[in-house]
């Protein structure tokens, strides 16, 4: 059986955890923003940063910004810390599930959004 060996010279988990959570956070935010944009027409119209791309332009721009800003912020915050991976995996899975739900058309159509 394989065992985990770690010595004091190994890098801390913090920067890696920051990268993982940033990806999950960005996708969760994409899901939330997508559903809100579909449900609230005014918000959806505001998200049309590019007229040709429509609200997808704003949704993805916000998600990309959230990804890099949260990665940078969490990375600086946890650059020397060593958080355990398991809770991070659970939180990341929940966040990705939120993103999957929010971007799934049958979900946001539950709120009366027309096809």
């Amino acid at each position: 059986m394989e065992t985990i060996t770690r010595n004091s010279s190994e890098k801390p988990n913090g920067p890696a955890v920051a990268a993982i959570l940033a990806a999950a956070l960005a996708f969760a935010l994409l899901g939330v923003v997508t559903t809100l944009a579909e449900v609230f027409g005014g918000f959806g119209a505001w998200l049309a940063f590019s007229g040709r791309v429509g609200m997808l332009s704003g949704e993805t721009t916000i998600a990309i910004a959230a990804y890099f800003v949260s990665w940078l912020g969490l990375g600086l915050l946890w650059r020397r810390s060593d958080p355990p991976l398991l809770p991070v995996a659970v939180v990341s899975a929940v966040l990705i599930a939120v993103g999957l739900l929010g971007t799934f058309p049958p979900f946001f159509r539950l709120f009366g959004v027309a096809e």
Binding site: A22, A23, A24, A26, F27, L30, G31, T34, L56, E59, T60, A63, Y67, I96, G99, L100, T103
Partner: peptide
Amino acid sequence: HLAWLAPF
């Protein structure tokens, strides 16, 4: 939307 999970 789903495709954006891949690059992240």
